[in-house]
Write a protein that binds this DNA or RNA. Sequence first.
DNA 1: TCTGGGGTCCTAGGACCC
DNA 2: TCTGGGGTCCTAGGACCC
Length: 412
Amino acid sequence: MTDHRTILHIDANAFFASVEQSANPELRGKPIAVVGGHGRTVITTSSYEARAKGVKTGMAIWEAKRTCPELLIVVGDNKKYQYTSTKMNEIFRDYTPEVEAFSIDESWLDVTHSLSIFGSAENIAYIIKARIKYQFDITVSIGIAPNKLLAKLASDMQKPDGLTIIEPDNVSRTLEHMLIKELCGIGKKMQRHLNMMSIYTCGELGRCEETRLTKKFGIIGKRLKEMGQGIDHSPVVRFGKEDDVKSVGHSMTLERDIDDPAEIRRFLLQLSEMVGSRARRYNVSGKTIHLYVRYADFFSSWGKQTTLKNYINLSDEIFRAALSILNTVDLEQPVRLLGISLSNLKHQAEQLPLFEDERKKLFATQAMDSINDRFGRMSVTYGTLLPGKEKAGSHVIPPSWRPDGVKNIDVQ
DNA sequence: TCTGGGGTCCTAGGACCC
DNA sequence: TCTGGGGTCCTAGGACCC
């Protein structure tokens, strides 16, 4: 069995910051940072000019400003990023239908069957770079390799505006001295465990006795050895062919820590509406509700879940379930963050409820959802929320956001 | 005014059923 | 009055990714 694939991994450099600089000439060439719109936000992305001065993702604004006083702060605009990402992926699909969006700013392309049309993978990469630069004034780093693991590794090797090719007969030479943490899938903990086994490089990982790895890590031991050898058979999964979404959730860090039960309930209702409206938009309902609380000290937190008999996706049903979880707990500290997610999902058959009052409720919900879609989240909501002035603020969507929505469910 | 938000997958232990 | 055991569903928690 031969695996002669040619895979591209395309990574937009400093994506959110690049989009902002592209949209506003006054930001170009300057250190800028994109942040969320609320009080306790952190740096989501920063431009290369800012990174050169020590600004890093995850820093608090004051911290970043201390590192780089001339830093320009830009509140993120999700719509722009979604639009640009979707358009970029349309460009990718000019070269192969096999395009998989890994996140809002990263995609894999399987160009194996496009090579005869476009000449070479390198050629495709250069054309894509030029088109993205011309159309959006954004640079991308591209990796070309025989599989997804290596293509992603390659795109990371030169930034920004890089193009790195790992030829099949060059794989072992490339991996020999590559540190294991560079591999997608090996994080801090795994790195520490492997280091304790005297494994530091991919070369060492690939040569490690498989039984030694399976003894320590169980089922993934085999996979780890393969990763060290640069083996990866996972396919590029094109748009619309992804697995169904497994959960829908939202969380928010509050502007200030709160302990007033009524206030906590208000935020839970708001989260329930965010989760519910998205579930309804995807046409899914779920029967497991998970409530997550982080306390004022930041370090202590808990999560509790409950599974219902019925599948639900109405905001007030989600709210009631979250509240029933909360009622089983005595809060130990003021609350810093609240989160709700809905899982155990199934696609919902679209059918009208039998009874008049249920139909009315459904129509009311749909009307509310469509108004919120047009005029922004929470334009219309339940009465309990109205007196409150505090809202979640505009959250910057995370890079894990996928163009065209979440996986399968949003695509047609 | 220290430290965001959205996901997936895996494991371990208990309940319950046949 | 021993101690089976496989399968499924559930909760809790951790590691990883962006």
